[in-house]
Amino acid sequence: MRTLLRRLAQVIVVLVVVTFFTAMLTDLLPGDPATTIAPFATEEQRDEIREALGLDKSLVPRYLDWAGNFFTGDMGEYYAGAGVKGDDVFARAKDSVPRSLLLVLYVQVLTLLFAIPLGVLTAYKAGSTFDRSANGIVFALVALPTFVFAAILKFWLGVRLDLLPTIGYVSPGLSLVEHMKTMAMPVIVITVGQVAIYSRLLRSDMVATLQEDFILMAKAKGIPNRRILWRHALRPSSLTLLTVAGLNIGALIGGALIVERIFTTGGLGSQIFDAINRRQYVPLQSFIAIVAVLYVAVNFFVDILYRVLDPRIRNV
């Protein structure tokens, strides 16, 4: 219970700092929303817009306005003009968050599915031809630029074989099959870049673990190698992998930007990018706050998992 409360306090601190830092950073960017909304206008007209939208205020009061709304459950709206109402941030978030979360979930699962066996086996056969060729293949895939790989997949799976749609997103509620079809290519494209990182990290820890006394002892006892690898060695070796997988949440959510644009699947990456470019401070801060909450929540579970996986960690 105390841990939970402490965590909650931590979440709020993280949120405030993250969003305030975002506000500061965007304030430093040249250009403002009023000019973006009204490029063809006189400076007086723009001043009216600034006043109507509260953009004439300086950084701190503007931030407090946002924070006051956000922490009472109002994510705000886009700046649209002097009179008209902009898009509701909550509505866009409600649309984008599931897309991003599902994408990240599929990518993580698929990546681990490939990376764990690959990491374990390459560690076991460290230095072998298998290790080296696996290494070569995964790095070749890392070096292949995302959009090149996406274009190749689109050409074959989308145009030639006509198996998968090349654009758009269907929510699982609407049609699970169509959902999987729209997500397939984006997930594959991102996964390919992740497998190398995850499997190499696991391999590196695993190689170290396999030199440990308790493994040698287990071997001496005549426990089969397979059992040693999967039962004894994997668990304590997965620490770095787990850390990175947890930390990667923020990176995957935002890093999906390129893939989201190529496949027009939408998601938080595109929303944040769009908000930065249009200097939409209110939605930007709200979206960053959402990513921060998701990120902290996931890593809270990762911390718990640490303890489960490696009982040696006591006073974290």
Partner: peptide, 16 residues
């Protein structure tokens, strides 16, 4: 909307 020019044409070719 599909901002990528090459991507838009690919989508047309794919029948999307």
């Amino acid at each position: 909307p599909q901002e990528g020019e090459a991507d838009r044409l690919t989508a047309l070719k794919a029948g999307d």
